[in-house]
């Protein structure tokens, strides 16, 4: 029975990882950009949410409505000030600049919020669960999973069915040819960064409601997001969901079997196995 519970927990956790990974996947897919401050942005969102709750009261859920547009704005701003200069340049410069951004955000959070851990209080929802026979499923992890899947479904509808979504994919294939079709690639990049930051803001708040967080957590979250993307395979949103679930399962099942080992190690090991055996990921397109 513990195994079933661990498996369910792993799948639900995978939804959160997929939500973390979505922004990384979109940024890389559209502009071949890797933002090493991705995880730090999630932690920033959790802290902002806690500040809003502390000053205005209520539950963290209302802060989502405020912070998603704020996240979009932060993404737009970062794109215009930082990322625009990094599209199409040597990856070394992308890494250095976004690594610098990560150092800045982490230490700014440390300065403002100290090194103490915080938590977002969602009241009784945190402990509520459904029982099906002997198996119980946490209500909040389930909610989180459903929201993550909804975000991925709407994003994939946006990319697959709308004119702007087609423009996204065309820009991803060949930005210069896309511009010849009248597509303003820089506007596409701005939207992509807006989506990337607002989804990672959402993930950060959901994560902060489950476990407590501190200013130095960002890099760890970045690694989970990165592993979900690579395990699932680059260039596929559904692959990212599958990768997130595989990562979540590896962590919870591994920790179930080897109780005194850290859960994230099993995620890392799965990542390395996938890298060794299927470098294009479980659902990745073969390299051309």
């Amino acid at each position: 029975m513990n195994w079933i519970m661990a498996a369910i927990g792993g799948v639900l956790l995978g939804g959160l990882y997929a939500l973390y990974a979505t922004g990384l996947s979109v940024s890389f897919g559209v502009m071949r950009l890797i933002n090493l401050a991705h995880g730090d942005l999630a932690v920033t969102a959790a802290f902002l949410s806690s500040t809003l709750v502390l000053t205005a009261g209520g539950s963290p859920f209302w802060t989502i409505l405020v912070l998603i547009p704020v996240g979009f704005g932060v993404g737009v701003l970062l794109q215009k000030v930082v990322f625009d200069r990094l599209v199409g340049v040597d990856p070394a410069l992308q890494i250095v600049a976004t690594f610098g951004l990560s150092i800045v955000i982490q230490n700014a959070l440390l300065k403002v919020y100290t090194a103490d851990r915080r938590a977002l209080d969602i009241g009784s929802l945190k402990t509520k669960s459904f029982s099906i026979g002997e198996v119980s499923v946490g209500a909040f992890p389930l909610l989180r999973f459903v929201v993550a899947v909804l975000v991925l479904v709407s994003l994939s509808l946006f990319l697959g069915r709308t004119s702007t979504g087609r423009a996204f994919r065309a820009t991803s294939d060949d930005p210069e040819a896309a511009r010849l079709m009248g597509i303003n690639s820089r506007a596409i990049y701005v939207i992509a960064s807006g989506i990337a930051v607002s989804t990672v803001f959402l993930a950060g708040i959901f994560s902060g409601a489950q476990t407590n967080f501190a200013s130095s957590d960002g890099p760890g979250l970045l690694i989970f997001a990165f592993e979900a993307v690579i395990i699932g395979g680059l260039g596929s949103l559904w692959g990212t969901l599958a990768g997130g679930i595989a990562l979540g399962l590896a962590q919870t099942l591994g920790a179930e079997q080897f109780t005194d080992w850290p859960a994230q190690l099993f995620g890392h090991v799965l990542f390395l196995i996938v890298l060794a055996v299927r470098p294009n990921g479980l659902f990745g397109r073969a390299e051309t």
Binding site: R166, R169, A170, S172, D173, D174, E176, A177, A178, L180, G235, T288
Partner: peptide
């Protein structure tokens, strides 16, 4: 030149 078709579309 080279057609530059969007290959994933």
């Amino acid at each position: 030149e080279g057609r530059r078709i969007f290959s994933s579309l």
